[in-house]
Design a protein around this nucleic acid. Sequence first.
DNA 1: GTGTAATCGAGACGGTACGTCTCGTCTTCTG
DNA 2: CAGAAGACGAGACGTACCGTCTCGATTACAC
Lengths: 225, 225, 225, 225
Amino acid sequence: VAQSADTSAGLQGRPRSEKARRAILEAAIELVKCDGFAAVTVEAIAARAGVSKATIYRWWPNKAAVVADGFLELTAPEVLFFMETGSVREHLKLQMHELARVLASENGKLIAALLAEGQADPEVAKTLRSHWISPRREATREILRHGIEHGELRADIDLEATMDALYGPIYYRLLGGHAPLDEHFIEALADHVMVGLNAPYGSNKITPIATTNRMKPVADEDGNR
Amino acid sequence: VAQSADTSAGLQGRPRSEKARRAILEAAIELVKCDGFAAVTVEAIAARAGVSKATIYRWWPNKAAVVADGFLELTAPEVLFFMETGSVREHLKLQMHELARVLASENGKLIAALLAEGQADPEVAKTLRSHWISPRREATREILRHGIEHGELRADIDLEATMDALYGPIYYRLLGGHAPLDEHFIEALADHVMVGLNAPYGSNKITPIATTNRMKPVADEDGNR
Amino acid sequence: VAQSADTSAGLQGRPRSEKARRAILEAAIELVKCDGFAAVTVEAIAARAGVSKATIYRWWPNKAAVVADGFLELTAPEVLFFMETGSVREHLKLQMHELARVLASENGKLIAALLAEGQADPEVAKTLRSHWISPRREATREILRHGIEHGELRADIDLEATMDALYGPIYYRLLGGHAPLDEHFIEALADHVMVGLNAPYGSNKITPIATTNRMKPVADEDGNR
Amino acid sequence: VAQSADTSAGLQGRPRSEKARRAILEAAIELVKCDGFAAVTVEAIAARAGVSKATIYRWWPNKAAVVADGFLELTAPEVLFFMETGSVREHLKLQMHELARVLASENGKLIAALLAEGQADPEVAKTLRSHWISPRREATREILRHGIEHGELRADIDLEATMDALYGPIYYRLLGGHAPLDEHFIEALADHVMVGLNAPYGSNKITPIATTNRMKPVADEDGNR
DNA sequence: GTGTAATCGAGACGGTACGTCTCGTCTTCTG
DNA sequence: CAGAAGACGAGACGTACCGTCTCGATTACAC
């Protein structure tokens, strides 16, 4: 979110203080976790970080950018990499569980706040997309491609829509708050959406999950893009 | 959202001005649509409505409540009533299209803003849930039940998770902004998630969906709000 | 300095709080007298007055205006009115002593600060001229006219230049700080400049002072405007 | 004003850059003349001089000191040397005209600003006194002494008060801004205060001033700074 | 009709945080 | 090692809204 923080930009002058930068990000995250995003002030961040307000505004345009950077740098969990050893379906399910676990934790409120802020601040939205949403989608996209190549998944699925089908409901519960983000939900959701990923009836490479999912793949219509 | 606005409370004194109330709600909605939720101030609403700030604060606790009320009263689209003529699946798909259409319109920004505000303001979240999300879920729930009863849908689905699977991805695209909310997406999504609703192969009441959809029209209606 | 503080302007709305106004002016003056003009902050004035910063900025454009108003309202000494009983010369001398006394007191620093601020802020300069300098000059102008009419003073003096000759040296010592503003100085100064006011030799209405001043009016050249 | 700028102090290391020093002073003066003292920043001076802020702060304690130094070095007009050819009175009058001319010029604003700053910053006040006010007073003092010695002026005048009487009104108009600093004013003023310098009527060495001024030319010169 | 009581407009108020600005110091690299 | 470049801590600036309050003027019901 910061203006790419090109530390080596000037080649001259006092270099940016890495200490101050970390102190700011840490203070921001701690305060958000403690008081909630809306209650956090740039002035409070500065005070807690032992830093001047001007130093914050020199590198970030506003509070949300600081928090976004802090979250991404300090607490954003790593993207799960696909292990060749498991089935694609199992891996996708695992990822859904993992996402739900993160969103149900303390960090969930933070992501929710950033998504919310993103509705008003395009810059925050962009950061969140490029550093949180997109990497995860890219990883999932690869897995889906892998599954398709190996015949584990139908070849005609719409990759983008599929990813929304997998993760969208989880974010929906996070933001809507109409129902809990628990493991039972993820199980039910995964069971539901996995069906749509089944390789067509008669495929010879069905993994365990495929059989688990009722064994009897439906032969319905499906679309992709 | 307003404190139930018990107009007849006092039995005495000047009654609440309905004109002012409408002017406020309309001004709020217009401003949000024009400038975005975050840029709207109570003072601006008051000015545009030709109303005193105190009058707003007398009836609503804050800006978000005004906007929420305004949205619900002035622009919240009606829940689709279930038509006897279509199949359950078709109806669900239709609802998904309708929701996407609304969220992709000008009102989508408004709902996104309210959902965002709801992350910080529980009252707004509650209002949105009880007046926007829940009625729609209730309607869908009924349809799903109907589909199950008539054998058009699997009997073992998790109703709540299913509704999240149907609508969650749509909200996800609205709020994430990572991909467009167009008809193509809804088609792909619907095709995907509908598979998970299939009655299991060999069910004795329902033929494979493709044919079923025409053979067994549901006879039910539903509405709310 | 305030925008004429037209309290009765609106005829509508909450009337301006006279209490707050006085608290602000008093706080400003106290702080200036305590810490000096340069060290005073609008925030400090607000804090001491128990008032919001916005309230100060609503009525005054800046710190100097507040202090100027406060000084003029709370501590500016009254203009000395001319008593018919004394001689014009005595009265002028009295006024010079009085001015020196004020400028040598605590208020002198205040006036010096305001005059200084006036160099950068035309509004302050204007206020000071219209509320401090001009009234005193006007009073003196009347006295000089009186003296001329009664033959106590020469008729061909330049009134404006005369007033500068009377008071300018006093302000000069105040601001230059090169010599003390004591009574001895005023005596010497008055003796010096009074000579130039003498009615021409032979005037039949010389007051005691005129005789004191060496009795022998010089017959030199003089100009006026 | 600078901390004696002992260029030769170190005996070792890179000597102070005279170029930078001049650039700073010139930039300061230009900026003050262009934007006014209050609007000038140390950063702006540094930028315009192509110099680092630290270099300025290494040699001057603050902005006012830089401007004061710049003024004294670059624009302070020379003290008028006393010409043997004129009378003391004429010379004094000439000096008054000259002072008024300078103060009415662009430099007048600068001197006014420095006098103003001197009210808050004793260091500036001291510099101004020692480099601007005092040398001129010293020169005038000599002239007055000369005039007394030669019987052109009264012997019982208070030298200090006299100088305030001569120049104070000029500074007063400069700072008060209540009337213009034009030649007419100086003429009137000089005529007025010169009367107080007259040797008493009947003095045995001097004829009435009007004639004296040509009869007894002073033989003296004076300079300073 | 005449109270009585609540609403309305206008707008001042105490607060709080904003984002900007300048100060004077410091830290690093370059010439 | 002086100097440029420029980041830094400090803290005041003036602005913008917040949500509350005080007014006087305006309704409409109750008597």
